[in-house]
Computed example of a mutant assay.
Amino acid sequence: MDASTPKPIRTPKAILFDLDGTLVDSAPDIAAAVNELLAAHSLPPQPVAEVTTMIGGGVRKLVERAFAASGVSLAPATLEQAHRDMRPIYLRHLTGLTKLLPGAREAIAHFHAKGVPMAVATNKPQLAARTILLHFGLLERLGALVGGDAVTNPKPAPDMLLFALERLGVEPRDALMVGDSISDVKSARAAGMPVALIRGGYTETPVEELGADLVCDTLLDLPAALQRVLTAA
């Protein structure tokens, strides 16, 4: 069985969570940051729904997509400057409009009570992710946090997942990745671990078509859905 094929779900000895679109709905804050950057370049704002399609791949990719949606193709040097301009703007828009997604707090509390080590693996910058997790009181229940700037290759590469699991002391085959997009599936497959997807995140493709090992309506459903899979195995 190679890394591209589905993986059997065992009782997880660790769970890794994506952040944006999985634990939190951060699209309104991200849209606010994008539109502040665009305004500084005399470009019109983008609606939240449009910005939502740009999420995934980190801040640099977000900036590139935002300008592309405005009809502007940036030269590499100009893109790098726009990315530098975006960094302080992005950090100003983290918790004002961001909300926890249904079941996020409950799922974290459930697995924490079961003694399952958890981590967040996100393409969001480390400081931004930490700020959000602290704001919602989730950081203290996590054994590790790996942001996009903590590794050389962010998702869909496996690097941050493997780094998080190394911090938790768990092998990939004994862990579970929980996300909302094809990037989460690809990174989990490349790391050699099973993956569960939550509906309602930041993907234009139905999650049932992304090749996950388990699909749940919300994080509220994850513990029971996981138990059903383990019981049927």
Rank of each mutant, 00 (worst) to 15 (best):
M177N: 10
G148T: 06
G137K: 08
L127Y: 12
S181N: 10
K114F: 03
L145N: 11
P102F: 00
E140A: 14
A121S: 07
L145Y: 04
H110I: 04
T95R: 01
A188R: 05
T131F: 01
A113N: 08
L165M: 04
L145M: 05
L127C: 00
A157N: 12
A164W: 08
L133H: 07
E140I: 09
A109L: 04
M118F: 00
G96V: 02
R173N: 13
L133W: 06
H112Y: 02
Y90L: 12
P156F: 05
L133V: 07
H110D: 11
R105Q: 14
T98C: 01
A157H: 15
A121L: 08
R84E: 14
K99R: 15
R173E: 15
S183C: 01
E106R: 06
L165Q: 03
T95Q: 01
L91I: 10
L168P: 12
T98D: 03
L162F: 02
P158C: 05
L162K: 08
K99N: 13
I108V: 11
A121M: 10
L165K: 04
V185G: 04
V170L: 01
H112W: 03
N153C: 07
E166F: 01
H93L: 03
T95P: 00
M177P: 09
A104R: 03
K99M: 08
K124W: 02
E106G: 02
A157M: 04
P158I: 03
I132R: 02
H135N: 08
E171G: 12
I132H: 00
R130G: 11
G143H: 10
L176G: 06
A150M: 12
V170N: 06
S181W: 09
F136S: 04
A104F: 00
K124P: 04
A107Q: 09
F136W: 03
M118S: 03
K99T: 15
P117C: 01
A107N: 08
F136R: 09
L94R: 06
L168Q: 10
A128I: 09
P156K: 06
M177D: 10
P88C: 10
D159A: 07
L139C: 05
R92I: 00
H110Q: 08
V120R: 12
R105L: 06
V170D: 05
G137N: 11
T95K: 01
G143W: 04
V120T: 11
G143P: 11
V151F: 00
A144H: 02
R87S: 12
I89K: 12
G137L: 05
D159K: 12
A144G: 09
G103H: 06
S183D: 12
